[in-house]
Design a protein around this nucleic acid. Sequence first.
DNA 1: GTGATTTACTTGTTCGGACAGGTAATGGCG
DNA 2: CGCCATTACCTGTCCGAACAAGTAAATCAC
Lengths: 186, 186
Amino acid sequence: MSRETNRDTQGQPSRPPRATSAISSVPVPAAAHAGPVSHAIFRVARLHRMIAGQLLRRVGLHLGQELVMMHLWELGPQRQTDLVRLIDSDAATMTRSIKRLENAGFVRRRPCPDDKRAVIIEPTAASQALRQEVERIWAELEGASTGDLTPDQQAETLNTLRRIEDSLARTAARTSSASAAGTGVR
Amino acid sequence: MSRETNRDTQGQPSRPPRATSAISSVPVPAAAHAGPVSHAIFRVARLHRMIAGQLLRRVGLHLGQELVMMHLWELGPQRQTDLVRLIDSDAATMTRSIKRLENAGFVRRRPCPDDKRAVIIEPTAASQALRQEVERIWAELEGASTGDLTPDQQAETLNTLRRIEDSLARTAARTSSASAAGTGVR
DNA sequence: GTGATTTACTTGTTCGGACAGGTAATGGCG
DNA sequence: CGCCATTACCTGTCCGAACAAGTAAATCAC
């Protein structure tokens, strides 16, 4: 959360705060009642992102940069466009992210011999020291997400998340194609 | 996703695509294998955020601004700091968000009579036209998230999400008070 | 081979989010 | 009353994300 995580100090608006139902449930009546699942996704996403950001910052990485490095470590040098596809990111975002990783000394840029448009990104030797740290962070993040769930419960959780993802993906496909029928058949 | 959502286009670097297991499962070996739940959360969050952004953009709002408006509509005029607490946002972010909503004509700023430091934010009459749209969008987003789940399954999903949130919240509480080893890329 | 299209990447802009200051106004305490 | 920590808000900066637009190279069509 932000720095201000206190409660009480009620303002003078014209309505009672609705008896904040449960334990820690932040008082968000409007959004919560309009779409409980949606709002839960939103809160989980924010917490997850925040924790990941905190952990990564300690090793000198920003959110998202760890994905780039993980792919480079695992698959070796990649063209920028391949990284974009792997992470399903944006070309513009990747350009700037790579630039910052380069400034930080974690990657190097090399022109592609086969294709003069392309650039090959490769992890530096110095970045190898990060690898274990990042893997530890991902394990920590996974632990923070799953808590003390049993493997069965984790599988169930994963199932639930996949179901949500599939559902959202279906909607995204419908929503984005306002005019064309295209679900990207080229 | 980004604009580039195509597949195939065989690349020529050393990239064995690893038999993309399922249907839509984007080929993200490294991150997925390091933390499946974590990675699922990440993907769900991104999809959810993207769809919400698309829907909101059609009515002239940006991500997060709808939360401000929903609270103002439901609770009436609020001080800026109250909005920050309600949404659990950041004071700086709120300042700019309010400024943009003001430029868009959706809110008005009025000095607080009791406290000369504070500012009262109130929804404009013009913003009332948005209210139904935003509520429709939230319903649509909820539908997109839950898909064709039965109420029981939705409750189960909600339970799972809450469990993740609690787990993350516990970690966040532990993490924020931990050590502080600087190291910054910036 | 020439021209049109596609691809790879860059840059500019805007947004939310987060952090680091900075300025008033407020309120408590001696 | 004066001192001082807190509060409410603002500004600057940096980052990821998304969109628009542009450049250069590769590829396709003819």
